[in-house]
Design a protein around this nucleic acid. Structure first.
Length: 826
RNA sequence: GGGCGAGUGGCGGAAUCGGCAGACGCGCAGGACUUAGGAUCCUGUCCCGAAAGGGGUAGAGGUUCAACUCCUCUCUCGCCCACCA
C-alpha cells in the first residue's frame, strides 16, 4: 500500500481508536514512578482550532510522548477556558444561549483536537463553565473573603464602552481593551477586588526560583510588579502643621528640594485652597486635569501644567519654607500622590521650574572641583557625583548619601525607608452574564453576607435574555436576584456581577489532578504528587496576566495549607506566533489557514512534522504550504524505506564482522539517538532533531544490502526501527503503523523504551583535519583519530600544496586542535 | 526615555565553552525512469571568476594563530515598560 492521503487517514483513525481503547494515555498516581506533568494553556472554545493551537499542542505532545517513552508517569490533560464574552456575543448573533453555544463549540473543538492525535488523558477533560468547576471558583472567593483578600471598594476603574464592563489593569493595553481594542475610560464604581498586592513581595522574590522560565517573561513580571525602593519624607504644611508625605528614590537630593507638588486629587488640596483668593482658578485647573483621560495626561512629551496653591511646606531637614504646587504630572495612584521637586537633578522638575520661574539649587556636582552654577544649567544633572549645599553630607558621593540620609532621617523622625509598588489590586467584577456568579448576598440588615459553603454553587440561571446592552444581565433575572439572607433569613439580593475569567484559569492546572472530586476543590495527595507542572507551554501574551494571577493563587493555596509548594510552573516555554505573509494569522486580516483543511489534504502527521521542523518553538513561524509538502515527502520516504527495505531476519550481528559501511551506519544510528535525545530534552530543538532523523534516514536509504546477507539486513532493520522509534513523538500515527509492520512486539510504540546510544559506536578510526595557513583554509587531511600534534604536523607539512602556499617562508607557529584544525602561522 | 531580544543564501533555518559558514529542508536548474503519481530517483545550487583564487554572517573598528560566535560604536527590526517621583 502506498502512503496516500486515504491511507494516512485510515492509519490515523486506526491508531487514535487503539490509543483510546487501550487507554494508553490515561494517567494514574503512582508513587513508585517519577511523574511528569505537561500542560499547555487551555483554549477558549471558539469551535475551531487555529494554527497557533496546533503549534502549541504539537510541541506539548512531543514532550509528553518523549517523557512517556523515557518511562515517566505522564499527566497530559486538556480542558476549556469556557466562560467569557465571545459566547454572549455569539448568543446574541445566533439567537441562542451562551451555554448551548459554548458546549457546541467544545464538541467541535474536541473532535478537531482528537484528529491531531494528541496524547491527552481525555477522562480528565474539564470546562470552566461547568457548575462542578466554577463552584470552586466561588469557594476560593469565599476563602479569600474570609481572609480579607477579597474586598469591595469604590474607586475609579477602567471601563470598556464596547464590552460594557470593567477591566483589570492587566487587561488594559495602550489605554484600550485588550480583547476588543475599544478605548478604555475611567469610571467611579464599587467593585470587587482581590488583594494580589498582599503577595507583592513573594511574587517578586520568587521570580528568582523560576530559572527555567524565559528571562523575558521574568523581566516583564518584575517590571509589572515594579518595586521601587526609597524614602517617605515627612514635609509639613506650614499653616496647620499637617503632614505631607512625599515619596522619593532620591533622598540624596533632599537639600535641593525647592518646591512640593501635589496631585490634583490629593486629599489636602481641598483644605489648602478653600477660601483663598486663588481658589476659583485652582478649581478650574483641577477640574480640567481630572477630566482629561489618563492617556492624555500621562503622555511624556506633553507640557507639564501646574498652579501655585498659595501655601507653603516646610522641609524637615532644614526647616526651609517652599511653595506647594499642584500639577498634572503627579499621579495620585503612584507613591503618595505628592513629590518634592529637585529641578537641578530631575529633568521633569527642571522643565516645570523653568516654565514657572521656580527656584533651583545644585546639590550634586559631577566633579568635586567643578562649580556649575544654576544659571549655567541647560538641563537637569541626573548623573552621579558628590553632594554640595547639603550641610553635614557635603562631600559624600551621592550613591552612599542615599542610605546615609535615609538613616539620618529615620533616626530623627523626618522620614522612613519604604518601597512602593506598581502592582495594583486585581479588579475581578464584570458586568457580564457568562461567568462565575460572585457568591455574595446583600441584606438590608446584615450588609454583604457571603453565601455559605453548603449552598455552593450559586448557579447561573439559564433563562436569561442576553442583549449586550448596559448593566449586569443577571440583575434582570428576579428569581436569581431575590433570595434570603443566610444570616437573618430576611429578604435579600444577590450580587449580580460575575468574575473575570482569568479567575477561572488561575487554578485549573490543580483541578486536572483530581478533576472529578465533588467534595473538595482538589485532592491534596494527588496535587502534591503531580504538581508543579513540569512543563507549561503557551503564548507570550500571557506573560503577565494569566501567569501572574496563577502564581498569586498558588501562594494563597500554600497559605491555606492545601499544598506544599508555591510556584505552579517549573518550566515555561512561550511558543512563537504562526504568521502568514509576515503577519499574525487572524480572521480580521483574512490570512488564516484552517488546520482541519490541512489535515484533510495531508493528514495530521505531516502537519505536526511541518510545524515542528519549520522553526524552533520559541521563534515566529511563517506558514507555507510548501513546507507541508516537504514533510509529506519525508514521511513518504520513510514509509517506502520500511515497506521496501525492511525484511524480518534475526538480529545477530557481531561487531567483528562489520565493514566500513556497517560501522558508518551504526555510527549514524547512535549519533542520531544521542542528538535527538539531547535536542528534545535540552531546549526543545525539534527542528534540528527532525533534520537529524532525515540524515539517519538518508544514510539507511543509501546503505546497500546484498540479498541473502542477513547480517547487513539486520543492521538496516535496526536503523529503520531506530528512525521509527525516535520519530514516534513527532508523528505518532505513521510510526505506530510502521512499528507494527516492522514486527514491533509492544502493543504501541509508545510503550517502547526510548533508546540509548553506544558511545563506542560513535568513535571513528580516522578523522578529517582541516589545514589552515594564517587562518585560511588550504587543505584537508584524513588522519588517524587521536593523532599527536607532531604526527599531524609531519603529514601536513609534507604536503606539496601546503608547501606551495608556504613558499619557503618560516613557520612561526603550528597550532593543532585535536582531530579538528591545524593552523600554520607564517 | 529605560529595558530585553534579534539581524546568516531566493526562502525556512543550521553552526555560538572561538576552530571547514550555510547542516537539514523548501525552491530552482539539468538529467534518468515511468506501473503518469501529490510521482520517484540522480546531479548541481552563497557571490565574483574559465580556472587558480578572491569575497562573504546588518555596518565600522578591536582582541586572537583563528570571530556568525568575544569587546566597542553605529544602523535596522521586534517586544515590554514609561510624567513611576
Amino acid at each position: 500500500m502506498p502512503y496516500t492521503t486515504h491511507e494516512i487517514h485510515r492509519i490515523e483513525e486506526k491508531w487514535q481508536k487503539i490509543w483510546r481503547e487501550k487507554k494508553i494515555f490515561s494517567a494514574a498516581m503512582d508513587s513508585n514512578k517519577k511523574k511528569y506533568y505537561v500542560l499547555e494553556m487551555f483554549p477558549y472554545p471558539s469551535g475551531k482550532i487555529h494554527m497557533g493551537h496546533v503549534r502549541n499542542y504539537t510541541i506539548a505532545d512531543v514532550i509528553a510522548r518523549f517523557r512517556m517513552m523515557q518511562g515517566r508517569n505522564v499527566l497530559h490533560p486538556m480542558g476549556y477556558d469556557a466562560f467569557g464574552q465571545p459566547a454572549e456575543n455569539a448568543a446574541i448573533k445566533h439567537k441562542t444561549g451562551p451555554a448551548k453555544w459554548t458546549y457546541g463549540c467544545i464538541d467541535q473543538m474536541r473532535a478537531e483536537l482528537k484528529r491531531m492525535g494528541f496524547s491527552y488523558d481525555w477522562d480528565r477533560e474539564l470546562a470552566t463553565c461547568d457548575p462542578e468547576y466554577y463552584r470552586w471558583n466561588q469557594w476560593i472567593f469565599l476563602k479569600m473573603y474570609e481572609r480579607g483578600l477579597a474586598y469591595k471598594k469604590a474607586s475609579p476603574v477602567n471601563w470598556c464602552e464596547s464590552c460594557q464592563t470593567t477591566l483589570a489593569n492587566e487587561e488594559v493595553v495602550n489605554d484600550a481593551c485588550w480583547r476588543c481594542k475599544a478605548p478604555v475610560v475611567q469610571k467611579n464604581l464599587e467593585q470587587w477586588y482581590l488583594k494580589i498586592t498582599h503577595y507583592a513581595e513573594p511574587l517578586l522574590e520568587d521570580l528568582k526560583k523560576l530559572a527555567n522560565w524565559p528571562s523575558r517573561v521574568v523581566a516583564m513580571q518584575e517590571n509589572w510588579i515594579g518595586k521601587s525602593h526609597g524614602v517617605n519624607i515627612f514635609f509639613f504644611w506650614k499653616k496647620t502643621g499637617e503632614r505631607i508625605t512625599v515619596f522619593t528614590t532620591r533622598a540624596d537630593t533632599i537639600f535641593g528640594a525647592t518646591y512640593v507638588v501635589l496631585a490634583p486629587e490629593h486629599p489636602l488640596v481641598d483644605k489648602m485652597i478653600a477660601g483663598t483668593p486663588g481658589e476659583k482658578e485652582i478649581r478650574v485647573f483641577i477640574e480640567k486635569v481630572t477630566n482629561e483621560s489618563k492617556s492624555l495626561r500621562v503622555t511624556g512629551d506633553k507640557k507639564k501644567e501646574g498652579i501655585f496653591t498659595g501655601q507653603y511646606a516646610v522641609n524637615p531637614v532644614n526647616g526651609e519654607e517652599i511653595p506647594i504646587w499642584i500639577a498634572d504630572y503627579v499621579l495620585m495612584e503612584y507613591g503618595t500622590g505628592a513629590i518634592m521637586a529637585v529641578p537641578t537633578h530631575d529633568q521633569r522638575d527642571f522643565l516645570f521650574a523653568k516654565e514657572h520661574k521656580l527656584p533651583m539649587r545644585i546639590v550634586i556636582q559631577d566633579h568635586p572641583n567643578s562649580n556649575a552654577k544654576v544659571s549655567d544649567l541647560k538641563e537637569a544633572y541626573e548623573g552621579q557625583g558628590v553632594l554640595v549645599n547639603s550641610k553635614q553630607f557635603d562631600g559624600t558621593d551621592n550613591e552612599s548619601a542615599k542610605t546615609k540620609i535615609a538613616q539620618w532621617m529615620t533616626q530623627n523622625k523626618m522620614g522612613e525607608v519604604t518601597a512602593h509598588w506598581r502592582l495594583r489590586d486585581w479588579l475581578i467584577s464584570r458586568q457580564r452574564y457568562w461567568g462565575t456568579p460572585i457568591p455574595i448576598i446583600y441584606c438590608p440588615k446584615c450588609g454583604a453576607v457571603p453565601v455559605p459553603e453548603k449552598d455552593l454553587p450559586v448557579e447561573l440561571p439559564s433563562n436569561i435574555q442576553i442583549t449586550g446592552k448596559g448593566g449586569s444581565p443577571l440583575a434582570q433575572c428576579e428569581e436569581f436576584v431575590n433570595t434570603n439572607c443566610p444570616n437573618c433569613n430576611g429578604k435579600a439580593k444577590r450580587e449580580t456581577d460575575t468574575m473575570a475569567t482569568f479567575f477561572d484559569s488561575s487554578w485549573y492546572y490543580l483541578r486536572f489532578c483530581s478533576p472529578r472530586n465533588d467534595r473538595k476543590i482538589f485532592d491534596e495527595k494527588e496535587v502534591n504528587y503531580w504538581m508543579p507542572v513540569d512543563q507549561y507551554i503557551g503564548g507570550i501574551e500571557h506573560a503577565i496576566l494569566h501567569l501572574l494571577y496563577s502564581r498569586f493563587f498558588m501562594k494563597f493555596f500554600k497559605d491555606l495549607g492545601l499544598v506544599n509548594f508555591d510556584e505552579p510552573f517549573a518550566r515555561l516555554l512561550t511558543q512563537g506566533m504562526v504568521l502568514k505573509d509576515g503577519e499574525v494569522m487572524s480572521k480580521s486580516r483574512g490570512n488564516t489557514v484552517d488546520p482541519d483543511e490541512i489535515i484533510g489534504r495531508y493528514g495530521a502527521d505531516p502537519l505536526r512534522l511541518c510545524i515542528l521542523f519549520a522553526a524552533p518553538p520559541e521563534d515566529q513561524l511563517e506558514w507555507s504550504n510548501g513546507a507541508v509538502d516537504g514533510s509529506w515527502k519525508f514521511l513518504n520516504r520513510i514509509w517506502n524505506l520500511a515497506e521496501q527495505r525492511f525484511a524480518p531476519v534475526e538480529d545477530n550481528i557481531s561487531a567483528a564482522d562489520s565493514d566500513q559501511e556497517d560501522k558508518d551506519l551504526e555510527r549514524e544510528r547512535n549519533a542520531a539517538i544521542k542528538k535527538v535525545t539531547e535536542d528534545i530534552s535540552e531546549g526543545y530543538k525539534f527542528n534540528t532533531a527532525v533534520s537529524t532523523l532525515m540524515i539517519l534516514m538518508n544514510a539507511a536509504d543509501k546503505y546497500k544490502v546484498v540479498t541473502g546477507n542477513t547480517a547487513k539486513q539486520a543492521l538496516l532493520n535496526r536503523a529503520i526501527r531506530t528512525v521509527i522509534v525516535l520519530l514516534a513523538p513527532f508523528t505518532p500515527h505513521i510510526c505506530e503503523e510502521l512499528w507494527e509492520k516492522t514486527g514491533g512486539n509492544e502493543k504501541s510504540v509508545m510503550n517502547v523504551s526510548w533508546p540509548s546510544f553506544d558511545a563506542r559506536a560513535l568513535e571513528r578510526d580516522s578523522v578529517q583535519v582541516v589545514a589552515q595557513i594564517n587562518g585560511k583554509l588550504r587543505g584537508k587531511f584524513q588522519v588517524a583519530s587521536g593523532s599527536s600534534e607532531e604526527e599531524v604536523r609531519e603529514i601536513v607539512l609534507a604536503d606539496a600544496r601546503i608547501q606551495e602556499f608556504i613558499s619557503g617562508k618560516p613557520v612561526k607557529r603550528f597550532i593543532y586542535i585535536a582531530d579538528k584544525v591545524a593552523n600554520i602561522v607564517i
